[in-house]
Nucleic acid binder design. Structure first.
Length: 804
RNA sequence: GCUGAAGUGGUGGAAUGGCAGACACAGGGGACUUAAAAUCCCCCGCCCCAAUCCGGCGUGCGGGUUCGAGUCCCGCCUUCAGCACCA
């Protein structure tokens, strides 16, 4: 029995990391002979703080899958890169007077060394960086394609403006009325902005969810965000003779429409300036609404406000009744037609409004008490006061009224989405320049492909300006150019792209990262797409994940990529919280630095703990003591080497435990149940310690199962044990089903569903034999005395239940 | 309000309708040690009991289905996340 050196993670981990670097054994193979597997983690934003403990949770989880797949014979592409454009770097550069490119390079180098220290099996030869002109050339190229197809357009419109970052935001970036990034106040500001027509893809983005395997909550959240609703557009005739079009999901309640409401921004007000008797009052209301931020508007949510448009009335097209028209900010210009028919009897908001202003409430669906509250249940209820709809259910009435409206030409079926077009301009320096020039003669003219990349100019000052202009606007040498079309003087667009641009297609570049002629070659794309498994944070569900699906579907439509969807499977990890159960943050002082943990316990123990700490999709508080426990486990695994004897193969009395462990670990890794997989290996180790010895082959299986989680210690042990093949090149073990059949098993004996005792029985025991055997047991016989068994339930291998 | 997820020991958490608390952490006791750390062994849901056995109670609350419910059904409560005047 040989004695082995001590377990010293620092030197062992360095040794194997260098080995992997040198041999490239973890890199994707260029040959397409093997089946491919493409796992992906969200590439990090290289912040100045370095890696936090959240990154390794997702990384380790996918690393385990990647490493297992290699052993299963797949050609695995597990890439890494850096999403390096963005505000924090720019802010740091401003504060410290260092060029953002230099800040970025330093941060990336720091991140890379931290990642390598953790032993992730990334293919570093395919690293991408969104700030590299060779990369953003293609980001710009995609933008030009979007422009060419009419999906990128410049528009003067009210946008979300973060007063702190001094930058426009997409709807997706406004969370709870404040800036997603900095928490600053968001106001509405009218600005000329580049927009992407993601709304053209609303239906495709919903339908595509059926083709992929996303965890339920991701699919649900995306669907809710896109917000499809079915209803009808209906034209009401005004007393002026014009039509006022509304959108409604409840055309069945048309007979109950007792007034109309238009949004403050509705063009009707300007049009009837001279007719309106109370124009002054209306104009004042409109201005007050314009001054409110979106946040204020939603805050006002309970208390409805509004002004009647005096001098105009509308005619309900089915009843012929004249009804008033109001203006109120509970109707949004950006959804539907910016005008509604109000049915106070069957809509909560209309009810509140009508009650406040004393407007008529007419019940058209019986089943509730509309004097008390709006009756909105569409499952129950029968139509009343509704002419030809009377007696029908809501569903029948809906179909009937739409047919009627379409026949009469006063309305039609209509689908609406909550999704808005994507505000794509940022008034910032550190982003991709938008490759478009404004020519006084030709309008917006795209650069030609050969002029890409359009590089960021060197500037003195990256500070954003209060007037909302990009820092690039001051760079007159760069801004003043010639029109690619007419050759006349023209100006460059000075806004840059949002951070989401580079991350919308990065997984494509990994596939062919050094290609100068195309974004990626068709051949490589055909082999590698789609991404097989993408793990990332829930916070990106309606941002990055949705945006990149949109870009991908667009690229599919123009024939650039061979699949309609980019990601076959999407999973999500839970957050790691501070030990006090709160979100980790500097200000709370509960941040754990992964470097410190690696220094104390080693990368393997760190990885093991991150996977063992709890269910992978759950938020879990960090407990350093727990990580120490994982190190203790690795010490025990290491010391098993002292117990290795000269036996060959798997001994009979360990065969069951080992094969059970193979089965459990294999299944649990796939289901991302890493915590129970590790528990199974701990159990096996405990079992091995109950025996005086363990064979080399037995230990060999254990370290192979453990390898994806703790790759360094297991490779080292594999070598010390004298195995010739590295674990990374060995095939993944398969459980021997025969070994999993036991001759004797323990069953629980119950009387009236209560466990009375446990006994070992042959696994092939029949029901009758079991009955005879069990009834004779003293614990049972005592209870059976004088009573007749009413029923007996036998679950072979589990239990025997006698009901008295 | 809407959508989704979750409520199990001191803690993190296990449990295809079939032995609740696997596996760990913390804690307690013991061995080894001059001592401590490390390591190894034992105990560790609650109540009853001096203690052991025996027994009883236990998976947010109230009902139900079932021989049997943490798990399924109905009705609540609480927490978290996302959306939030989207007609």
């Amino acid at each position: 029995m040989a004695t082995f050196k001590e377990y010293t993670p620092a030197s062992i981990e360095k040794k194997w990391q260098d080995h992997w670097d040198k041999t490239g054994v973890l890199n994707a193979e260029s040959s397409h002979d093997k089946p491919k597997f493409y796992p992906l983690i969200e590439f990090p934003y290289p912040s100045g703080q370095g890696l936090h403990v959240g990154h390794p949770r997702s990384n380790t989880a996918m690393d385990i899958i990647a490493r297992k797949r290699r052993m299963e014979g797949y050609n695995v592409l597990f890439p890494i890169g850096y999403d390096a454009f963005g505000l924090p770097t720019e802010n740091y550069a401003i504060k410290n007077h260092i060029h953002p490119a230099i800040v970025t390079k330093n941060n990336v180098d720091h991140f890379r060394s931290q990642l390598k220290r953790l032993g992730f099996s990334f293919d570093y030869s395919r690293e991408v960086n969104t700030t590299d002109p060779k990369y953003y050339k293609w980001t710009q190229w995609i933008f030009l394609k979007l422009f060419e197809k009419g999906l990128a357009y410049k528009s003067e419109m009210p946008i979300n403006w973060c007063t702190s970052c001094k930058v426009g935001l997409a709807n997706e970036e406004v969370v709870g009325g404040v800036c997603e990034r900095c928490g600053g106040e968001v106001i509405r500001k009218v600005k000329s902005q580049w927009m992407l027509r993601i709304t053209d893809y609303a239906q495709k983005l919903i339908d595509g969810l059926d083709e992929v395997n996303f965890i339920e909550k991701v699919a649900v959240q995306q669907k809710n965000w896109i917000g499809r609703s079915e209803g009808a557009e209906v034209d009401f005739t005004l007393t002026t003779g014009d039509k006022l079009r509304v959108y409604t999901t409840r055309p069945d309640t048309l007979f109950g429409a007792t007034y109309m409401v238009i949004s403050p921004e509705h063009p009707l007000v300007e049009k009837y300036k001279d007719i309106l008797e109370n124009y002054e009052e209306i104009a004042a209301y409109r201005e007050a609404a314009a001054r409110k931020s979106d946040f204020d508007r939603t805050e006002m949510n309970k208390d409805k406000t509004g002004v009647e448009l005096k001098g105009i009335r509308a005619i309900n097209p089915v009843t012929g009744t004249e009804i008033p028209v109001w203006i109120s900010d509970y109707v949004l210009m950006s959804y539907g037609t910016g005008a509604i028919m109000a049915v106070p009897a069957h809509d909560d908001r209309d009810w509140a409004f009508a009650t406040k202003f004393g407007l008529k409430i007419i019940e058209v669906v019986a089943g509730g008490n509309v004097a008390e509250a709006a009756f909105t249940d569409i499952q129950a209820g029968t139509m009343v006061n509704s002419g030809f709809l009377n007696g029908k259910s809501v569903k029948e009435a809906k179909a009937a009224i739409i047919d009627y409206l379409e026949q009469k030409g006063i309305g039609k079926r209509k689908v609406n989405y909550k999704l808005r077009d994507w505000v794509f301009s940022r008034q910032r320096y550190w982003g991709e320049p938008i490759p478009i020039v404004k020519c006084p003669c030709c309008g917006w003219v795209p650069l030609s492909e050969k002029d890409l990349p359009l590089r960021l100019p060197e500037v003195e000052n990256y500070e954003p300006t209060d007037d909302g202009e990009s820092p690039l606007a001051a760079m007159t040498d760069w801004v003043n150019t010639t029109c690619p079309k007419c050759g006349g003087p023209a100006k460059r667009e000075t806004d840059t792209m949002p951070q989401w641009a580079g991350s919308s297609w990065y997984y494509l570049r990994y596939i062919d990262p050094h290609n100068d002629n195309e974004l990626a070659s068709q051949e490589e794309l055909k082999y590698w797409l789609p991404v097989d498994w993408y793990n990332g944070g829930m916070e990106h569900t309606t941002l990055h994940l949705l945006y990149s699906r949109f870009w991908h579907r667009f690229l599919y439509d123009i024939g650039v990529v061979p699949t309609p969807e980019p990601y076959k499977k999407r999973t999500s990890h839970g957050m790691i919280l501070g030990s006090n159960g709160e979100k980790m943050s500097k200000s709370r002082g509960n941040v754990v630095n992964p470097d410190d943990v690696v220094d104390e316990l080693g990368a393997d123990a760190f990885r093991l703990y991150e996977m063992f700490m709890g269910a992978f999709d759950q938020a879990i508080p960090w407990q350093t003591d727990g990580a120490r426990g994982c190190r203790r486990f690795l010490d025990r695994v290491w010391k098993l080497m002292e117990r290795v004897n000269d036996d060959k193969g798997i001994s009979k009395d360990l065969a069951y435990d080992i094969n059970l462990c193979i089965k459990k670990v294999s299944e649990d890794y796939e289901a991302m149940k890493y915590n129970t997989a590790i528990a199974a290996m701990m159990t096996l180790v405990n079992t091995m310690y109950q025996r005086p010895n363990v064979s080399k082959d037995e230990l060999g299986v254990l370290i192979q199962l453990l390898n994806p989680v703790a790759p360094h210690i297991t490779e080292e042990m594999n070598e010390l044990l004298g195995f010739e093949t590295e674990l990374v090149r060995k095939p993944w073990p398969k459980a021997d089903e025969k070994a999993l059949v036991k001759d004797e098993i323990e069953i629980a004996v119950q009387v009236n569903g209560k466990v009375r005792c446990r006994v070992m029985v042959p696994s092939t025991l029949t029901r009758d034999d079991a009955n005879a055997y069990v009834s004779a047991l003293p614990e049972v016989a005592k209870l059976l005395e004088g009573k007749a068994a009413k029923k007996m339930v036998y679950v072979p291998g589990r239990l025997f239940n006698i009901v008295l």
